[in-house]
């Protein structure tokens, strides 16, 4: 589903990603963990081309992200083509980023109607179903400011699912939440995982990674330190760096 080969990313002089190689299979729940500043969020943002990679290759569903290759030449995609690629990739942000001038339902309706040109009837039916599914069927007419953090993040998940994506990216979805609200968001994510959604999750929730994850990658300083099955890596870390990180967060 997602394949990265030698992915590098620099912001000016800062070398944030130093050659990432990994592969995510369809239906897999792939967890990215590591200390802050390790580049895991940056890598996630490269997958839907919110950040341009500086070197290497990155494929989603067999297609290069943000570029087209012809022979040995590589061409930048047009804005419209990048937007088309992103339709099939849902993303959930740490700070929710709901549209504050729209109700919860309008947030979920926006992309299907504007991007896919669906009618209000078709999009509305799905939007209500999705809000029901994240447990907010009765909050459709609420503005984001009147929802709790956990509710906002669940609306954000529904908004991403409304585009019927093949792949979901989660960028620390519970880091901005009060501890007691983390559970309701993780429950929704667990449900998605059980249904076979391909998910890449940047998280500090080791419990979630252990239970729901199929693979786990530990990143530090822009590189993959170790990877494997979550239970394996979390219980028997091989590298010193992983051990010292896990001893602080577990």
């Amino acid at each position: 589903m997602v394949r990265a080969e030698g992915v590098h990313k620099s912001f000016g002089a800062a070398h944030v990603l130093k050659g990432i190689d990994l592969e995510v299979a369809p239906g897999e729940v792939f967890c990215l963990v590591g200390p802050s500043g390790s580049g895991k969020s940056t890598f996630l943002r490269c997958i839907n081309h919110l950040e341009k990679i500086s070197a290497g290759r990155l494929w989603v569903d067999g297609r290069l992200v943000g570029y087209r290759q012809k022979g040995d030449k590589i061409y930048e995609l047009k804005e419209r083509e990048v937007a088309a690629q992103r339709r099939d990739i849902g993303m959930v942000f740490q700070r929710f980023n709901l549209f504050p001038h729209m109700t919860a339902l309008e947030n979920v309706l926006e992309a299907p109607m504007q991007v896919k040109g669906e009618t209000k009837a078709v999009a509305g039916e799905r939007a209500r179903r999705l809000l029901d599914r994240v447990g907010l069927g009765d909050r459709g007419d609420h503005y984001p400011a009147r929802l709790s953090g956990g509710q906002q993040q669940r609306v954000a998940i529904a908004r991403a699912l409304a585009m019927e994506p093949q792949l979901m990216l989660f960028d620390e979805p519970t880091s901005a939440l009060d501890p007691e609200l983390v559970g309701e968001v993780l429950d929704v994510m667990r449900g998605l995982a059980e249904e076979g959604m391909t998910m890449i999750v940047v998280t500090h929730e080791m419990g979630f990674a252990r239970e729901a994850g199929d693979s786990l990658v530990f990143m530090d300083d822009g590189a993959v330190v170790e990877s494997g099955h979550p239970r394996e890596v979390l219980s028997h870390p091989r590298h010193e760096r992983t051990k010292s990180f896990l001893s602080k967060v577990l």
Binding site: F93, N97, L98, F99, Q114, A160, M163
Partner: peptide, 20 residues
């Protein structure tokens, strides 16, 4: 973050400006 969220949903720059 608003622009990013709109882009992540597949909206183009012009539409993001107008709608969001």
């Amino acid at each position: 973050g608003q622009t990013e969220a709109a882009h992540a949903l597949g909206m183009t720059g012009g539409r993001t400006m107008r709608r969001i």
